[in-house]
């Protein structure tokens, strides 16, 4: 589904990613872990198409197409979804209007019929129940006045609504208490299927107790220093990132 080949990315002339390669197949969950400043969020943002990141070499192939050649909206319509580390507040745009517009643009692109207000509401209510979102949130402006936890929960709600093929979760666990963490994890787990894939970007192992990854990669200083199975996350938790860095130096 996703193939990242020897990717180099700079931000304001500073090299952040220094040759990342990663392959993600349908049905897989990959965790990308790493210390602060290792380039985890850069990788997530480059996949989503955010401005300000210069790909100096390498490529990202998504479903056989050149992902870097697409606008952010095109990527979204093709099934790429980023759950933001810092979801943006948009005063004056209601959650419901925002989601209906987004969902129908994506459906249109896929050649599916747009949902009318009634159908949309019905579909939305199903998903709201799943994520434990209160109906009052929908008439509120996007993320405005939401707590940190509500914002993250709203990201997963959007994931459920839009049903992408590839979901990238950028530090979705940060700022969540244990109850919220379980709800968010449950939202991701019910999304998981043999037809889609998830990349979980996280600093801590704790989210991975609930979203069990198939593969764990450790990003250090812009490179994947180590890859392994889910047990690698536990080992990291125990030994710390210094352990990987030392290992790399040897």
């Amino acid at each position: 589904m996703l193939k990242i080949n020897d990717l180099f990315v700079s931000v304001e002339e500073k090299e952040i990613l220094k040759g990342v390669s990663l392959e993600v197949n349908k049905g897989e969950v990959h965790a990308i872990m790493g210390p602060n400043g290792s380039g985890k969020s850069t990788l997530a943002n480059v996949i989503a198409g955010k401005d300000g990141y210069e790909v100096t070499s390498g490529e990202i192939i998504y479903e056989g197409k050149d992902l870097l050649d697409m606008d952010p909206e095109e990527r979204a319509r093709e099934g790429v979804f980023l759950a933001f580390q810092y979801p943006v507040e948009i005063p004056g745009v209601s959650n419901a209007t925002f989601l209906k517009t987004a969902l129908n643009e994506i459906r249109k692109y896929r050649g599916e019929a747009e949902l009318d207000s009634r159908e949309f509401l019905q579909y939305m209510r199903e998903k709201m129940k799943l994520i434990g979102i209160d109906e009052s949130m929908l008439s509120r402006s996007v993320n405005q006045g939401f707590s940190g936890g509500e914002k993250k929960r709203n990201e997963i709600f959007q994931l459920q609504m839009l049903q992408p093929k590839l979901a990238v979760l950028d530090e979705t666990d940060s700022g969540l208490d244990i109850d919220a963490l379980k709800i968010v994890a449950n939202g991701v787990n019910t999304f998981r299927s043999a037809d889609n894939a998830v990349i979980v970007v996280t600093h801590y192992q704790r989210l991975l107790n609930y979203i069990i990854p198939d593969f764990v990669h450790v990003l250090v200083d812009g490179k994947i220093a180590r890859s392994g199975g889910k047990e690698l996350a536990l080992e990291l938790e125990e030994k710390g990132y210094e352990w990987v860095k030392e290992g790399e130096a040897v």
């Binding site: 401005d51 606008d71 909206e73 979804f81 948009i90 987004a102 994506i106 959007q158």
Partner: peptide, 15 residues
Amino acid sequence: DEQALFYLRSRGIDE
């Protein structure tokens, strides 16, 4: 707001 613009686009809404 460029951040908000990107947020909307990342959900499939054209620029």
